[in-house]
Design a protein around this nucleic acid. Structure first.
Lengths: 221, 221
DNA sequence: CATTTAAAAAACAATCCTGTATGTTTTGGC
DNA sequence: GCCAAAACATACAGGATTGTTTTTTAAATG
């Protein structure tokens, strides 16, 4: 019932790398299923059986490609990491800042994109892993470099987005922290009432703060 | 091996409510152990056996008082809720604002207390539960009123702390959100580098923002 | 002091999950 | 077409967890 592809496509019959191609397709399906499981079931309820079920693959087949649960999860985490880096790039590339001017509109769009980023399914999946890593030493060690990577990307992107600002010292770091911590805090507050309205006000407020921080940086230079 | 108390204390020998007293003592020990398990092991790894082990009680004894795992956890959550409300009161009562003036020092102390609140073990335990509730419908339903309760306490306390401000309209709500979302976001960012320094800057920055928001409120009135 | 009731401990059955081992099918090369 | 190897599927053993049942111990009462 619903295998991926049980025989070579007519067009690519007996193509050289058919086997390998199918294999990697299945692996990708498995990794994406694992991520979906993180989102739907939470990290600790993501069992090998569930992943296989989501991927429409027998558990045996999965265990053939990934010898243990830990391996699947680590591979899924790496896959998710790359995906998030890419999603971040895509979102930030969409910011409409033709003249590189540091106008309020640009700040606001940046903040909005950060907020959208924090609402992607990938973000939810990632937070599941991060939360689990608090009480899972092995997982925490695996996550440490991943986390560093993200922080680096934040900073690098901000620097290249606002080159003038980045020359003004450490204030840019504060601005990044304001955006990151706030959006994360909001994203993780699942159960607050009136969320949309409050978030909207917060986003506008943060934008004002960015202008203010930038202003301080400029005036001190 | 380390029972709680295996016989009536000499002083209170054969006291009327000895049995009931011991029973409630054990129940409290169990609930606190459950919370410790949340902190040490995470929500999903908090098994009945672990709770009993932490409480130095046989699992059978525990199951006698709490017929199922869910019951223990729900009781523990209620216990934690009361504890957190109390801790919040205690922390906020310590704010040194003799003349009720809205000085920067008062704002800063408020922010610092909010940050300390977000670093209490209770907070960690609570976040474990909240994170688990995202993918656990039953738990989420149980948590909804608890969450509402906390939000109400935030608002009520802020209003009574800053009565003048609370008359100025909705800006106080924004100020609360700034503090809450930011501190939560920072508290949940376990793995960031340089955390202390960044947090310190953020706390000072938030304080400035509170003054600024209050200023807006005043000027518009 | 004896008896009845509650509390605590231990033992048990059922379920779930992981890892492995074994069996079957499909693929690629000859 | 045939064979070896990889891919896939199924079955099983060991361990953990939950909830129940049974047995033992302690407390309360007449």
């Amino acid at each position: 019932m619903g295998k991926l592809e049980t025989s070579p496509k007519n067009g690519a019959r007996k193509s050289a790398g058919w086997q390998a191609e199918k294999s990697t397709m299945m692996q990708v399906a498995i990794l994406e299923s694992a991520i979906d499981c993180f989102i739907d079931l939470g990290y600790s309820n993501t069992t090998t059986a569930k992943i296989a079920e989501y991927a429409k693959v027998s558990r045996g087949a999965m265990m053939h490609h990934f010898p243990s649960r830990l391996r699947v999860l680590q591979a899924a985490i790496e896959y998710l990491h790359k995906k998030r880096l890419q999603e971040y790039d895509t979102l930030m590339a969409n910011i409409d800042a033709p003249d590189r001017a540091l106008s309020r509109a640009v700040f606001y769009e940046s903040v909005q994109m950060a907020w959208r980023y924090a609402n992607l399914p990938s973000f939810t999946a990632y937070q599941e892993i991060l939360a689990a890593s608090r009480t899972d030493r092995e997982l925490a060690e695996f996550m440490a470099p991943v986390e560093r990577d993200f922080e680096n990307q934040y900073r690098e992107h901000a620097k290249s987005m606002f080159p003038h600002w980045s020359d003004l010292g450490e204030y840019l770091d504060l601005a990044i922290d304001v955006v990151v911590f706030t959006t994360q805090g909001m994203a993780l507050s699942h159960m607050v009432q009136n969320k949309e309205a409050r978030v909207d006000k917060m986003l506008n407020f943060i934008t004002d703060q960015l202008q203010l921080i930038y202003g301080s940086a400029v005036s001190e230079s």
